[in-house]
Design a protein around this nucleic acid. Sequence first.
DNA 1: GCAATAAATAGTATTGATTCCTATTTAGAT
DNA 2: ATCTAAATAGGAATCAATACTATTTATTGC
Lengths: 124, 124
Amino acid sequence: MKRYSPQRETILKIILDDGTHLSVDDIYNQARSKMPKISLGTVYRNLKTLEEHAEITQVQGPQQVAYFEPNRGPHHHFICRGCNSIRDIKDPEIKVCTGCISKKTPLKIEEVITTLYGTCEACS
Amino acid sequence: MKRYSPQRETILKIILDDGTHLSVDDIYNQARSKMPKISLGTVYRNLKTLEEHAEITQVQGPQQVAYFEPNRGPHHHFICRGCNSIRDIKDPEIKVCTGCISKKTPLKIEEVITTLYGTCEACS
DNA sequence: GCAATAAATAGTATTGATTCCTATTTAGAT
DNA sequence: ATCTAAATAGGAATCAATACTATTTATTGC
């Protein structure tokens, strides 16, 4: 990665500033309000670059939609089936035991992603 | 669901007979070899119907590709980052503790999906 | 500072998976 | 056997994502 272009900085800032999870369209729209000539291709390209450099993380949301969030270490997600909202679940709050499987199989486990599906307070 | 059409039976049988995880294209191609005039739309429609009736399950594979498998109860998946293969991990082999979170938050958790990413024997 | 070189961009075209649409066929019920 | 609703084939339409290209912008070595 060369140096941050204004476009890349804008995109990264949008994601860092936002506490929730943004879709490509969210990001594109927010970016356009600050930088009207930015193109959608630029958004996609930079999201890819930023993800490759581990500055942001892509989350697979409901209905095959991709969401992006700042890279803030291992954690999990809760997706509400009512309103499709995503929220973070901090790592210590749930525990996944992978020790047992790694002893049993020759698979090398590098990452564990746990997603909880359910109903949030508002939708209950 | 009315009654099984030959197309739906064919599609379901392909998935039940297969031990691995099939993409839409895999299913379409296998179906066409048995039933040359079947249309892609029919495959999609039936996959949706079969999933709604809990006969099959859709798995979100690597690179946003959807895979289908018979519905054989709760289990998890291991995805190899080398060859993109998916394999099942039986439920008792890993344990996810959700009890702790449900006490802390008012979220109603209905399903927990854990996906392991790593490297398989062949790719090591 | 200034050319040379490489990376990034805007804008548009293209792709590819999925859904939608419509006339026709098929299966189940009366 | 007829009627009615569901399912189908085939093609058109949609939509997210990628690819392409000419142009702009930044970095490097002088």
